[in-house]
Design a protein around this nucleic acid. Structure first.
Lengths: 141, 141
DNA sequence: GAGGACAGGTCTATAATAGAGACCGCCTTC
DNA sequence: GAAGGCGGTCTCTATTATAGACCTGTCCTC
């Protein structure tokens, strides 16, 4: 039933019938990139290495717990490195690894698209909401 | 390899001090792109328009509820269109809008990166986990 | 040598979210 | 007239995120 005509070479693997979506590399990674804080941290670190509390200040609405978790995941995935300096008050520096740097380029494309398209999306939302006034997202209501 | 200057200009706005992260277009959109099902749906629709149940079959582990919700959001954001055909059993067709098509390119870059980097990430994870055996992610434990 | 400030976290309790799966009205097919 | 597909919605429960208190140090000041 499922048309397995794989037109696009990029998406082909994701569209084949035998594809096991539950252990998809792409989904695995998109889940990480897309979560609420990861990309923010990556962008902050794109500029220069940051200490823990610098990152906290850069994104004031992230809780310590979430920041720790995000950083751990990124470290585990090899996108950032964590360096502890045994200075007077021990300092911890996070910085992008080469792999982490390499994600900035595709991420940058997406950010660029987001910026370019934001207006369109906002007006699409406004239009949708005015067309569906009472039940914008009935599933959630 | 990586055009650092481009990155800087792209991320500049996100790095400024006055930047209000809570209503950041990019985060807004990344949250959507990055959520568990959105990109999967987009990729499926990249091939051709799909009906509701076709999408369900394409991603067997998505529940109807989540699929509905994902589609509503995408429709609201103007990335896909929803067309109801009053046929014998009424059919609903979802397809990408021009805006939806336009996101495929940056998304494709990211997917491409994910595929290329997956091995590195896996081995980074393995290394991390063997270096931190008991407490891979203590925050969650 | 007590008190406070900071760093870099961890722990707990609660709110929000995702997910499974039952249900529904309508139609067609057996 | 029973069964099954379509395109959903609804309810209930498990998972996850978030806020915010707490903790272990090391300074520094008094």
């Amino acid at each position: 039933m499922n048309s397995r005509s794989t037109v696009d070479s990029l998406f082909g693997a994701m569209q084949s019938d035998t594809f096991d979506a539950t252990q998809c590399p792409v989904r695995n990674i998109l889940d990480r990139i897309g979560d609420k804080w990861t990309s923010l941290v990556l962008v902050a670190l794109a500029d220069r290495p940051h200490r823990f509390s610098e990152l906290q200040r850069a994104a004031p609405d992230i809780s310590k717990r979430m920041l720790t978790q995000t950083l751990r995941q990124l470290e585990r995935d090899g996108l950032i490195t964590r360096q502890v300096f045994p200075t007077k008050p021990p300092a911890v520096q996070y910085q992008l690894s080469p792999l982490g740097v390499s994600v900035l380029e595709p991420l940058g494309h997406l950010i660029d698209w987001a910026n370019r398209s934001y207006d369109q999306i906002l007006s699409a939302r406004a239009e949708y909401d005015s067309a569906n006034p009472a039940s914008a997202l009935p599933v959630n209501a």
